[in-house]
Amino acid sequence: MKNKIQDLICEALKNINDELDNENLKNPHANTHIYGIEGNLDSLSLVSFIADLESSLSEHLGIDIVLADEKTMSARNSPFKDVSSLSEYIYIKSKE
């Protein structure tokens, strides 16, 4: 399940990269930075990425999750740091 989540995150990053043309997002992997320090997305791109990812998770895995809630966005250790941390966060939230 974690691998499928990670694959969907990477696919969503590739989709948003069609607009950004960021070399770091052409072939995203577990250590690809998403947002924050060294992040590859600005806040506007992050919103688009989250919307795409939430839709994809629901469609492909039946995971209905809100990633942009106040608790997540203000967390001290943001799950949006990199692909690995976000996939772990989604996996844990999907089990709740």
Rank of each mutant, 00 (worst) to 15 (best):
M1A: 11
M1L: 11
N3L: 10
K4G: 05
I5T: 02
D7Y: 06
I9N: 00
C10F: 03
E11H: 06
A12D: 03
A12Y: 09
A12F: 09
N15M: 13
I16W: 02
E19K: 15
E19D: 10
E19Q: 12
E19I: 13
L20K: 02
D21V: 12
N22H: 14
E23H: 04
E23L: 14
N24W: 09
L25G: 01
K26A: 14
N27G: 12
P28L: 07
H29E: 11
N31G: 13
H33N: 14
Y35A: 04
I37G: 01
I37A: 03
E38C: 10
G39E: 03
G39Y: 06
G39M: 06
L41C: 02
S43G: 04
V47F: 09
V47N: 04
S48I: 10
S48E: 07
A51C: 06
S55R: 07
S55K: 10
S56N: 14
S56Q: 15
S58P: 03
E59M: 13
E59D: 13
H60M: 15
G62R: 13
G62A: 02
I65G: 03
I65S: 01
L67F: 07
D69H: 10
D69P: 06
E70W: 08
K71T: 07
M73S: 10
N77D: 13
P79T: 08
F80A: 00
L86T: 05
L86I: 09
S87F: 04
Y91T: 04
Y91R: 04
Y91I: 05
I92K: 12
K95T: 12
